[in-house]
């Protein structure tokens, strides 16, 4: 038997949509075939859904929804973490947070980290990525060297740099002593502590972004660059008009990681400065820890957590919607 219409053999999904018996019937009216398809889809998918959905749903509920809900609930209490929360204080914790100058400072610092990432770290990473993807001697070695800081644990990196910055015995002190100058205590000064930390952040994470860019660069079709060569494009023109636009999705992803990384920054700050001096290096998470956890202000800390969550979700979703919708 032959199908009446060749296209009836299979639909876009490759599934046989019409059997040969169907073909001798009058053309279908209304949604009949659609319903059939849904039913067959349901037939094949339900067991999968039943089997695979609960673990994921359970994990998501236990690890994300429940803690979030609990934190939201606790944020309305004055509670030290012992026993059950009982002192309901309405929105007092939230009011206190927005009155707290250290929180404002933390917000500004998180912004600073994002800006530094975008303006310094990503260009640096991109520049180095273009260097080490060239077929030159030692490129692979340098890739490894540049990636090394990222492999290091955040806490270890923080402690190493605390020694480096130490004004008595550190590397910085050594350099200053060599030139006969009085060494500065970068981490002990409210004006220099944050820039010093930003430098460490750039050092720590540029390798990660560089790797992303290397992957992106390798995915670019060489023939396009060759075509540009034939058209007489200069190196800069090739980079600006060919490479960069084709790296678009990688750049957007990189910025996304930088933003999320900034909001989560904690492990490295604690050994470096612990948020001081005078709260000048507080980030949202160190603020949460210093003002919520160590002070046994679980209600207050939960409120910070809720605010952090809202900021994270808003940023992540709007960024994905606006900048990454085609990626």
């Amino acid at each position: 038997m032959f199908p009446t219409v060749p296209g009836d053999f299979a639909d876009a999904n490759g599934k046989t949509r019409m059997t040969t018996t169907d073909s001798i019937l009058p053309p279908p009216v209304g949604p009949a075939p659609k319903m059939r398809r849904r039913r067959s889809l349901a037939h094949t998918k339900w067991p999968v859904v039943i089997l695979f959905m609960p673990p994921a749903l359970l994990i998501f509920t236990v690890l994300v929804i429940l803690p979030m809900g609990e934190a939201a609930w606790y944020s309305f209490f004055h509670w030290n973490g012992y026993g059950e929360p009982s002192k309901w204080v309405d929105f007092r914790n939230y009011k206190l947070i927005f009155k707290n100058s250290a929180f404002t400072k933390a917000l500004i610092n998180n912004g600073l980290i994002i800006i530094t990432s975008i303006l310094i770290q990503l260009p640096l990473a991109l520049w180095l990525a273009t260097m080490v993807t060239r077929k030159i001697k030692g490129a692979l070695f340098f890739r490894l060297i540049f990636f090394l800081p990222y492999v290091l644990a955040d806490v270890a990196a923080g402690m190493i740099w605390r020694f480096v910055y130490d004004g008595d015995f550190g590397l910085v002190a050594g350099i200053f002593h060599f030139f006969g100058a009085q060494p500065p205590f970068l981490l002990a000064n409210a004006d220099t502590a944050m820039p010093a930390i930003l430098a460490v952040i750039v050092w720590k994470y540029f390798g990660f972004h560089m790797m992303l860019f290397i992957a992106g660069l390798q995915a670019i079709d060489k023939s396009i660059l060759e075509a540009a060569d034939i058209d007489g494009a200069t190196g800069w023109q090739k980079f600006r008009l060919v490479t960069l636009p084709m790296l678009g999705s990688t750049v957007r992803l990189s910025v996304f990681f930088a933003v999320i990384g900034s909001l989560q920054l904690f492990d490295m700050i604690m050994p470096l400065t612990g948020g001081g001096p005078a709260n000048s290096t507080q980030t949202m998470v160190t603020f949460l820890y210093n003002f919520g956890v160590t002070r046994m202000q679980v209600g207050f800390g939960s409120a910070v957590g809720v605010i952090l969550f809202i900021i994270c979700v808003t940023l992540a979703f709007s960024y994905k919607r606006i900048f990454m919708k085609n990626d």
Partner: peptide, 13 residues
């Protein structure tokens, strides 16, 4: 979110 999740993960382990 990540904090509470992290914290819970630690407690779970």
């Amino acid at each position: 979110m990540s904090i509470t999740a992290k914290w819970l993960r630690y407690s779970a382990s």
